[in-house]
Design a protein around this nucleic acid. Structure first.
Length: 458
RNA sequence: GGCGUCGUACCCAAGUGGUUUAAGGGACCGGUUUGCAAAACCGUUAUUCGUCGGUUCGAAUCCGACCGACGCCUCCA
């Protein structure tokens, strides 16, 4: 099955066709670095990563960009309150973003452009819009005239007649116009850039538009973001680029739904956020990743500890299954059969991770039956290895290198030996107390036909 | 107010007209196995998909009304 993606422009699943044969260019709206990011933010970033991996699975080379917004009202607020420089604040949260992305096994992007590196280009972009009469200067700020964009309202149906005119910025000619360049005000302190229209700073919508123009010549295959960005952000991004370049900014627009807290969306302004690094510490990156991928990206997910506990059990089950196979998985060739194709088809059907997980678990259960009956053959073993490798190329929750050789502490090893001795003497009391002790050190002992087996606790 | 999305078992969650009289995971209960556990295996838990109507040979899947939840229209992943 060929790759299908749900395109927000048409509100339909469409067969994906790339601009050039082999190479796919994607852009995702990244974080504003004024605070720690929460698990909801990372749901979107893990979704970008999923898209990237599925494209690669389909044989595409990917060129990916996720921007970092380091010019913003909230950042300026913090600069003024904390008496730190802009750079000091933004670089702290930027590196935290990069580090946590790595811990969650998000593949590195080709580019992570920053707004502060693009101010000059943004100024010339705004000048271009002014030259072509798509924008106007008012009170040292620059606004985009949405009337000049024939395609405006790609993502929404605004019904301009119904718009609320009560709180209109008097500098705007029309209520729907949006700002490209914000003139300096006192509360901006010493944060400003010089421009032909006076000192000020670029506005948010300008940033992504200019980065795409610069990195990708104003045209990409896929643009992603959270649903909340559809309007006005993505609409306004499109408007600026498309009036100038006369082509679609992006052929496909993918929007990820929000992670919620008790049915209310999680957001920094609402204060109902969950910190990611402590979550990874408590559960492990694999559990967090599986949790984020266990619902389809276009559905809301409610955060809960219970779900994380369930995902933890799922990762344990997968790990147990993987441990049945001793070959070096890294060197296995990916030769696919029916079971694998079902898994691939699910992912190609608009990145249907829950279905793919279901198929993988059905396969595990089928193989476990054979293992239980001791009727597993070489072909089954090979299929299993291929499936494990395929599964991990997308979900990336198995650590193949450490599957079999977790470093077992000396203390645990010694306990294992004495437990074996007590078992031989049929001293069950002692053997059970040793088992408890091993468990308190973080390991499960399982007695199998071939002797004691250790499994690292999560 | 305008625009839009969603409502599937005890919980989570796929499926969006017939190959599904509804995947998969968690949970519960019973069984096999085990010294006991754990794991694994077997079996049980939705004749039913918010409610009510309609279209169709056939609907959870399409249409309409209603009820409920949420999102966007303002910073936001």
């Amino acid at each position: 099955m060929s790759l299908k993606l749900y395109n927000s422009l048409s509100s339909k699943k469409e067969i994906f066709k790339s601009i050039s044969d082999k190479r796919v260019k994607t852009y995702g709206c990244g974080p504003t670095v004024y605070n720690h990011l929460h698990i909801g933010n990372y749901r979107t970033f893990v979704f970008y990563d999923l898209l990237n991996r599925v494209l690669q699975m389909n044989g595409y080379e990917t060129e990916t960009a996720v921007n970092i917004t380091d010019i913003d009202d909230k950042i300026i607020d913090r600069v003024n309150h904390e008496k730190l420089s802009l750079k000091e604040i933004t670089s702290k949260y930027e590196s935290s973003f990069i580090e946590l992305s790595e811990s969650l096994k998000i593949l590195p992007n080709s580019y992570n452009p920053k707004a502060t590196d693009y101010v000059e280009l943004m100024i010339s972009h705004i000048q271009d819009l002014l030259n072509e009469d798509f924008a106007y200067v008012s009170n040292e700020s620059v606004y985009f005239s949405v009337d000049k964009d024939q395609s405006y309202e790609r993502f929404v149906n605004l019904k301009k007649d119904d718009m609320d005119f009560s709180d209109v910025n008097p500098d705007k000619k029309f209520i729907g116009d949006f700002v490209l360049w914000k003139s300096w005000t006192e509360k901006d302190g010493n944060i400003f850039w010089d421009s032909p229209w006076g000192k000020g700073r670029p506005a948010w919508h300008t940033e992504c538009a200019v980065m795409i123009k610069d990195l990708f010549n104003g045209q990409i295959d896929i643009h992603c973001g959270g649903v909340d960005l559809k309007f006005p952000h993505h609409e306004n991004e499109c408007a600026q680029v498309e009036v100038l370049c006369k082509n679609f900014l992006s052929n496909y627009w993918l929007h990820a739904e929000h992670l919620t807290m008790d049915d209310i969306k999680m957001s920094k302004s609402l204060g109902n956020v969950i910190n990611v690094s402590s979550l990874i510490e408590d559960y492990g990156y694999d559990v967090v990743r599986l949790f984020l991928l266990s619902a389809h990206y276009r559905t809301k997910v409610s955060f809960s500890q219970k779900k994380l506990e369930e995902c933890k059990k799922m990762t344990e089950k997968i790990n147990r299954f993987a441990k049945n196979f001793t070959s070096d998985i890294k060197s296995i060739d990916l030769k696919f059969s029916n079971e694998h194709d079902l898994f691939i088809d699910a992912l190609n059907d608009d990145l249907n991770t829950p279905e793919a997980i279901g198929i993988f678990f059905s396969f595990i259960s089928e193989m476990n039956k054979k293992i239980a009956k001791n009727s597993i053959n070489d072909s089954d073993k090979e299929k299993s290895l291929v499936f494990l490798k395929l599964f991990n190329s997308i979900f990336d929750i198995l650590d193949f290198g450490n599957l079999h050789n977790h470093k077992i502490p000396k203390e645990v090893q010694d306990l294992l030996v004495s437990r074996q001795e007590s078992r031989e003497k049929q001293d069950w009391k002692l053997s059970d107390s040793i088992r408890d002790k091993i468990e308190s050190l973080g390991w499960y002992v399982e007695d199998t036909a071939s002797g004691q087996k250790l499994l690292k606790k999560k």
